[in-house]
């Protein structure tokens, strides 16, 4: 049996999930990073991408995160998410529309366009679509109702 550690997923509005996992994979600003129990203390910024929790029995729980921060320390990981959703919850038409909008803004080359914001929006939209395509129909992302955090 692998060593477990505690993971908390928080958003600005509520505690989304608290659980014990074997590993956590997060989209760090320097690339995907994996965290196992007793990881060295770490603070990193997160970029849009998949956040994957692996449970003791090998089941995986996937979230699409749109950015935030990860703090690891004292055998505990805290994910501070800007926004977070399950792959099944992703609104694909909306993500496609957001991609379209961001691309148009980037191409228009008009002054007064916040290029960084448009790029960030584009990255979020692409990440949502990828995660939806890869995970939305997979059974392994399912969890028993009781495992869901009370809200």
């Amino acid at each position: 049996m692998a060593t477990l550690f505690r993971v908390e997923i928080l958003t600005s509005e509520k505690r989304v999930r608290t659980t014990e996992v074997v590993s956590l994979t997060a989209p760090g600003s320097e690339g995907m990073l994996g965290v196992l129990a007793h990881h060295a203390p770490l603070i990193t910024a997160l970029v849009p991408g998949p956040l994957i929790l692996t449970q003791d029995d090998g089941r995986r729980e996937v979230y699409a995160i749109s950015g935030g921060f990860l703090e690891v320390g004292g055998n505990r990981a805290v994910v501070l998410a800007d926004a977070l959703e399950r792959p099944q919850e992703i609104d694909l038409p909306r993500a496609r529309a957001a991609e379209e909008r961001a691309r148009r803004r980037l191409q228009s080359r008009e002054p007064g366009i916040d290029v960084r914001r448009a790029e960030a929006a584009l990255r979020r939209a692409l990440s949502r679509q990828q995660i939806s395509a890869r995970w939305a129909d997979r059974r392994e992302t399912d969890f028993e109702a009781e495992a869901e955090c009370p809200t």
């Binding site: 600005s12 760090g28 600003s29 320097e30 990073l33 060295a40 203390p41 770490l42 603070i43 990193t44 910024a45 921060f69 320390g73 800007d82």
Partner: peptide
């Protein structure tokens, strides 16, 4: 406590964190 590893580095994490922190306070 402790020596934290910062990725990419402390200054960049700080630059991303501060605007978010101010928003959190205001909220």
């Amino acid at each position: 406590p402790g020596d934290y590893i910062f990725e990419p580095d402390a200054a960049q994490v700080l630059a991303q964190l501060l605007p978010r922190y101010i928003a959190t306070r205001l909220f």
